[in-house]
Design a protein around this nucleic acid. Structure first.
Lengths: 183, 183
DNA sequence: ACCTGAACACCGTTCAAGT
DNA sequence: ACCTGAACACCGTTCAAGT
């Protein structure tokens, strides 16, 4: 039951985050939404930041859509889906790519695992000859940089929404892939 | 004199930001550092967020190093310098690429101007035949996405600092330029 | 082990009052 | 026009006390 209470608190925090942004996530509001007192969260989390890190960690572990295609297509489509999810859930995305003032072991582990999954895909796409050779980890960093940077440009209103310069984060991901696969 | 007091408040906020992160920027601390009461800032700014937006706007208007080379080289070196500055001033960088809950006209104008400067450079580099053709604004978005995304990867500890996968934000900018200019 | 209510030291913001 | 000090309604966190 303790585990379910913990999950309830994480879910309540995530809901508040979606609805009102970071400012709406107060321990009092989280407690109220979970039906407990405002400091009950301290029995499950060291601090408010630890609770938010748990929210972020849960997002990182969200199951990714499995596609029955080759690694290169899975990588490309996966990054597009990642960007589309991020634009649809800006607060959760921001949390997963934000900096933390405390050490959050579980979050760091989830983050490392997510990154390793991308590296594996990149490596396979290179082995299939669909991406240029070179260190897979470094190429993964380039892909994630562009994807996350493009999402942030969109979220901060710095992508033209109309006219010839119009581009969505997915368009920019496409541009990078086209440039990378042109040999 | 009013203008100087305003500048003093902005500088005090920037200093506190550098030293202790966003949490250290309280109106009480800003007032103290500027030698005024904790609510004197309200005579110059609508809110704490407006003060932070002024800090961010000042960073966006910081003069860029001028290099006596062609537009393509200026663009490439300019993005590298941007990334290097961001890694050295993570809090100021984060502020300039963050989302705001209020409308900040002056900040939005500074941001649009900074972006237009990049577009001008990209356009000139394309005209010089050093970058592939295509909409300059969209290509600018791709370049900024990668640069800012790479900086954020570095700031959140997601770039290998050692081994074969090691890459700095500047390395990733280089990778993108190499890929773009390979015809 | 988990939870509560009261309390503490903050915080952003407002307001009446001063110059 | 600019500033002050007091006050308000919050906030995260701590603590003594309960089960």
């Amino acid at each position: 039951m303790a585990e379910s209470r913990r999950e309830t608190l994480i879910e309540a925090a995530a809901q508040l985050l979606d609805q009102g942004g970071p400012a709406a996530v107060t321990l009092r509001a989280v407690g109220k939404a979970a039906g407990v007192s405002h400091n009950a969260p301290y029995k499950h989390f060291d601090s408010k930041e630890a609770l938010l890190a748990a929210v972020a960690g849960r997002e990182l572990r969200r199951p990714s859509q499995t596609l029955d295609v080759g690694p290169f297509e899975r990588l490309w489509a996966g990054l597009r889906l990642y960007a589309a999810w991020a634009v649809r859930h800006p607060e959760r995305f921001s949390l997963t790519v934000s900096r933390w003032t405390e050490e959050n072991a579980a979050f760091a582990a989830a983050q490392a695992e997510a990154r390793a999954d991308w590296v594996t895909l990149v490596f396979a796409a290179q082995a299939a000859g669909r991406l240029p050779p070179g260190d897979a980890e470094r190429m993964t960093a380039l892909l994630l940089s562009t994807a996350e940077g493009a999402v942030n440009l969109a979220l901060t209103g710095r992508l033209s929404k109309t006219g010839p310069g119009h581009a969505s984060p997915e368009d920019l991901i496409d541009d990078l892939f086209v440039s990378l696969s042109r040999r």
